[in-house]
Nucleic acid binder design. Structure first.
Lengths: 202, 202
DNA sequence: AAACACCATATGATCGATCATCCGATGAAA
DNA sequence: TTTCATCGGATGATCGATCATATGGTGTTT
């Protein structure tokens, strides 16, 4: 079935902005002028403002009253903070529910396939999906929501582009995790925590 | 020094909405009609919409396209989820930095004073401040931001009003925590985690 | 030259109006 | 009665215009 409701303009605009951030169309620190973007997308200022506010809550753009919005200046410190919070959230997730090992294996398989095919986007997508699966298994919708608000996918793309970080797709990294979950190892949470944090810079 | 910038209308409106949610002016599930609120506050629809969007990201109101916003129907399950995530975040915070025991003691003292004076608002305020201090001590701005996004203060007020929950102000609950932090007990994080979770329903 | 007042432009913030959608009421058809 | 098409009001979504602020340039005073 097709969606019954047409997504609001603001959603479309948010996607455009997200794509621009990921692709590097806007550089960090660059101003995003509401009217300019509105004219370019042939919409009015209002939905553009709303979309910018959403990106602001995702901490992807910054803004001050009467000063407008600009692309956030992503730093390695910011990235480290994301990994620290992620590690904590995902460990919390493992305390609340056990992820299905079969699904995890599927994600890992796709991840490897993507790496073999050299598809960077797919590597990121499936790498993130692996962790999303774990968070979802917590059964805690708030936890999922908070985790999503970190914008893991965007941060991964941005850090690959800006910091030349390499996508993490090693089998050796994920297999032990899957196995730990499979045997319901009480150490699985800690393993996952360290696995995530291992990718934090510095 | 006074603030140099006048806060945007949307901020004022957000405060009005927050106060209304805390005070019970709007009941759970109740519609919040943009134009009605705008007329009442003598502003236009636009800033009201933006304020509503902010409350939406705080998960205090729900909305669907073309359907408008309504006050969220807070449930005990929601409350439990908040406590679970809080417990995880705060334990994570303790791994990243040690809170200053003196500041914690000060918060506890104010908490007791408020309890003695029978001031419910102050009890909530200082009880929350105690935990906020711990999160801030992590030195991780993202963690602080994520924790704040849980809306702990609002949830506490709402759950007291809707679920008849009692504010938690026991000395016996907080003193062991302060002492654990003071001696840098490696178990402090776990103590805190359990302390928070102990207030979760069911 | 330095400091300051003033003005012009760009742009965010807000407004009032219009468009589009939802939803209940109404009534015709089965 | 039940079902369904249609209509109209209420209201969210979007628009175009206006108000207000920030920023940089220009000229004047010291």
């Amino acid at each position: 079935m097709e969606p019954v409701v047409r997504p609001p303009l603001r959603e479309e605009i948010r996607k455009v902005l997200l794509d621009g951030l990921i692709s590097g169309r806007w550089e960090p620190g660059e101003r995003i002028v509401e009217r300019r973007l509105a004219a370019e997308l042939q919409v009015s200022q209002a939905p553009v403002r709303e979309a910018l506010r959403e990106l602001e809550t995702l901490r992807l753009v910054e803004s001050a009253p009467n000063r407008g919005a600009r692309v956030r200046g992503f730093t390695l410190d910011d990235l480290r903070e994301v990994y620290q919070v992620r590690a904590g959230l995902e460990e919390t997730a493992t305390r609340l529910g056990r992820p299905p090992a079969a699904a995890l294996r599927a994600h890992v398989a796709r991840l490897h396939a993507a790496a073999a095919a050299g598809s960077l986007d797919d590597q990121v997508r499936h790498g993130v999906a692996f962790h999303r699966e774990i968070v979802a298994a917590s059964g805690n919708a708030l936890l999922v929501s908070v985790w999503e608000s970190l914008g893991v996918e965007v941060w991964t793309h941005v850090s690959i582009r800006l910091f030349r970080m390499r996508p993490h797709e090693n089998a050796a990294d994920h297999e032990p995790l899957v196995e730990a979950f499979e045997r319901d190892d009480p150490q699985a949470g800690r393993l996952l925590h360290d696995h995530v944090l291992a990718y934090a810079p510095g």
